[in-house]
């Protein structure tokens, strides 16, 4: 675990030093929230969750890209994919939880007659999904611009497509609409169960994609054999 924590600590330090980026990340969900607060309180909750997702996945994308320069060296220095991917995910999840907390408190004190526990669940799942989503994009797409454009498309689609459409379930944040409906409109528990299942599956699948992409890019090479010295 020491190596995983070392990677997580380094990733947290890297992100903490990008102060302008952090400020934008912090304010982006607020802009989403305020955009619909005047006319539709419930919709503003859904939007703030999507804003969180966008901000965190963008942070993960840039964090993954920043790690590209040093990760080959770390791999040769004794780190495995478990340490490198796990450490970066740990850092991003920590930042995600820190970022989500003020927004949960905002909803808690600004909105009434909603299920707060379900909203906390949406935010937790959003954090869980966004970190591997951004890292997966950084692993698959070598340039940040391409990854950012894909993120833009995904979040845009997430806002526009009809959540009842089957294809909408392929989007990583579909669960926010389902659990959001349960939390805001007080629908039956089926919405919560479907959303929870979707969120957990999305997080697992995206984490698997990150792991596989890492192995393809930097995993063990069949031509290279290390013979330990005793």
């Amino acid at each position: 675990m020491r190596r995983t924590y070392a990677v997580a600590e380094a990733a947290l330090r890297e992100m903490a030093r990008r102060r302008v980026v952090l400020a934008i990340l912090l304010l982006l969900p607020l802009a989403f929230y305020l955009s619909r607060r005047g006319d539709h309180l419930g919709q503003s909750i859904r939007f703030v969750c999507l804003g969180l997702g966008w901000a965190l996945s963008t942070a993960a994308l840039f964090s993954g890209s920043a790690g590209r320069a040093i990760e080959p060296r770390l791999r040769l220095s004794g780190y495995s994919g478990r340490h490198l991917v796990g450490g970066r995910l740990l850092a991003l999840w920590t930042i995600g939880l820190l970022l989500s907390t003020p927004y949960f408190l905002l909803v808690r004190f600004d909105q009434h007659d909603v299920r707060y526990g379900a909203i906390a669940l949406i935010m937790a799942l959003t954090v869980a999904v966004s970190a591997p989503f951004g890292l997966a994009l950084s692993a698959i797409l070598p340039r940040e611009l391409e990854g950012t454009l894909v993120l833009l498309v995904v979040v845009g689609l997430q806002m526009m497509v009809d959540p009842a459409d089957t294809a909408a379930r392929a989007l990583p944040y579909w669960f926010t609409r389902e659990i959001g409906t349960y939390a805001i409109d007080h629908t039956d528990r089926g919405y919560l169960d479907r959303g929870l299942l979707h969120g957990v599956l999305a997080a697992l699948v995206l984490t698997a994609v990150v792991t596989v992409a890492w192995r393809v890019r930097q995993g063990p090479r069949s031509h290279l054999e290390f013979v330990p010295l005793r």
Binding site: E14, A66, G67, I70, F226, P228, L229
Partner: peptide, 17 residues
């Protein structure tokens, strides 16, 4: 490779921040 390996690339290899 017998033992441990150290590698110094031509560029990169460090973390900007």
């Amino acid at each position: 490779v017998y033992g441990r390996l150290g590698y110094c690339p031509q560029d990169g290899g460090t973390s900007e921040f």
